[in-house]
Amino acid sequence: MRIERLGQDKIRIFLTFDDLSERGIQKEDMWQEIPKVHDLFTEMMDQAYKEVGFDATGPLAVEVIALPAQGMVVIVTRGKYDHHHPGFGSSYEDELPDEVYEMEVTLESSDTILYSFDDFEMLIEAAHVLNHMLVEAGRLYKYKGKWVLQVDSDPLEESKIQAIIAVLAEFGDAISVTSAVLEEYGNVVIADDAVGVICEHFKLQN
């Protein structure tokens, strides 16, 4: 579990599939109202308070994005008290409760596989292994000093997706950002067919 502060009222938590399995949670469980998922959210909020000082008191907007390879990205935004909120009666207008822990959860799934590489040589090696598995695939970003390869898993068969993830995991690291974050804060280096372009211009080092 990795926690990153995005702002005064916003954090991002990255859960790997190992984090989930250690707690007896399947990916599909995140879509259900079950006690162990509530326990996981409580644990995340406790850890967020300890690590980055994020106080989860008050209404929270929780966005859970399931990624095909990396695990899940959980974005938590702390809202402001709304005196007209249906949860508060008029008697609460002058004296709000000390602790309100309510969550509005949004769940979505992404078809995007994202892996980062510290070393461009490792990316070249990965691209040459992937080249025979993918046709005109991949988008390459530069983000926070790392090379990030994005592959859309939507048109691929499940067995091929797992093979691609195995290759990427051998050479790179799963990254806890979404495509939207990369699009906004990263720099596009190769917009299309990144795997093919890298293989065409960069040969393997002997």
Results as ranks from 00 to 15, higher is better:
13 I>K: 04
206 N>I: 03
114 L>G: 10
131 N>P: 07
194 A>Y: 00
74 V>T: 04
41 F>N: 01
130 L>F: 06
142 K>Q: 13
200 E>V: 02
16 T>G: 02
79 G>Q: 11
204 L>M: 04
162 Q>D: 15
13 I>H: 01
103 M>S: 09
29 D>S: 03
3 I>V: 00
87 G>T: 09
68 P>S: 09
56 A>K: 04
192 D>S: 13
6 L>R: 01
172 G>A: 06
164 I>H: 09
104 E>P: 04
55 D>R: 13
96 L>E: 01
64 V>S: 03
76 V>E: 03
58 G>L: 10
188 V>G: 14
102 E>T: 15
72 M>P: 10
110 S>Q: 08
50 K>H: 08
7 G>N: 13
195 V>H: 08
201 H>F: 07
10 K>S: 13
99 E>R: 12
121 E>R: 00
43 E>P: 10
174 A>E: 10
9 D>K: 12
202 F>R: 13
10 K>P: 09
34 I>S: 08
161 I>A: 11
152 D>L: 14
119 D>C: 03
70 Q>R: 15
45 M>I: 05
25 I>C: 07
163 A>V: 09
90 S>G: 12
76 V>W: 06
118 D>L: 05
132 H>Y: 14
125 E>F: 08
97 P>D: 02
174 A>G: 12
199 C>I: 00
153 S>R: 07
85 H>N: 05
121 E>A: 00
109 S>I: 03
179 S>L: 15
130 L>T: 06
170 E>Y: 14
194 A>N: 06
10 K>W: 11
27 K>P: 12
1 M>N: 03
118 D>N: 14
92 Y>K: 03
205 Q>D: 12
63 E>Y: 15
142 K>P: 07
60 L>T: 03
67 L>A: 15
168 L>R: 07
117 F>T: 05
37 V>F: 05
156 L>Q: 13
47 Q>I: 02
6 L>S: 01
73 V>N: 10
28 E>A: 08
59 P>V: 11
110 S>M: 14
145 G>R: 05
67 L>Q: 15
24 G>Y: 03
74 V>H: 09
136 E>F: 06
102 E>V: 13
154 D>Y: 09
112 T>N: 15
21 S>M: 05
163 A>G: 09
95 E>D: 06
51 E>R: 07
14 F>D: 02
123 L>H: 06
177 V>Y: 01
60 L>A: 13
34 I>T: 13
38 H>R: 02
63 E>P: 04
138 G>W: 02
68 P>H: 14
34 I>H: 07
125 E>N: 14
7 G>Q: 01
156 L>D: 04
36 K>C: 11
96 L>F: 01
117 F>R: 06
39 D>F: 10
61 A>S: 12
11 I>M: 08
64 V>K: 05
134 L>D: 00
62 V>F: 00
68 P>C: 15
165 I>N: 12
111 D>G: 08
33 E>N: 14
130 L>M: 12
42 T>H: 14
45 M>Y: 09
